[in-house]
Design a binder for these strands. Structure first.
Length: 156
DNA sequence: GCCAACGTTGGC
DNA sequence: GCCAACGTTGGC
């Protein structure tokens, strides 16, 4: 089981949005970056765990965790001319973009802010700090454990 | 709202 | 295939 960090602008899609859909899964669509796409298509598997990160706000932070319930499959929004994520180069036969489905697991009791992560001796090397623009990135088991401990939850 | 980082596009 | 121009992300 691998660990990941997914970023989202809470004004667009927040952990609350994910949480309040207990009866259904949520598509993680609209990713239009090749490196993130490769993770979605090739590496992210059912059962993997995800740190849910809120970006582009005054206090960016990891706010909760989620579980992958469906591995990479073609992103239907790329095929829909009405979607803002429409990509005319992507077709049903040769899809370019992929998405996964997530299920809400838990909120952190205490959000772990970017500031905290940057200042932590064992977290300063995270992709979040070094490659700040990558929206989907791998997390090591050690980083996962530290962030959950800082966040005040156990059992995941 | 600014701007640095950096990914993508397109002319040559 | 290089690289300048441009667009986007995301911290501040």
């Amino acid at each position: 089981m691998a660990h990941w960090l997914f970023k989202s602008e809470p004004g667009c899609f927040s952990i609350e949005d994910l949480k309040h859909r207990p009866e259904m899964t949520e598509h993680w669509d609209g990713v239009r970056n090749y490196q993130a796409r490769n993770f979605l298509r090739d590496a992210i598997k059912v059962g993997d765990r995800v740190l849910f990160y809120h970006s582009n706000i005054p206090q960016p932070a990891v706010v909760g965790i989620a579980e992958v319930v469906r591995a990479g499959y073609p992103d239907c929004t790329a095929l829909d001319p009405a979607s803002e994520h429409f990509d005319p180069k992507s077709t049903a036969q040769t899809p370019i973009w992929y998405m996964v489905d997530l299920r809400y697991l838990a909120d952190l009791k205490h959000p772990v802010t970017l500031e905290t992560i940057k200042g932590h001796p064992l977290l300063g090397g995270m992709a979040l700090v070094r490659r700040s623009r990558l929206s989907i990135q791998p997390v090591t088991p050690e980083e996962w454990g530290i962030i959950l401990a800082l966040g005040g939850i156990t059992g995941y």
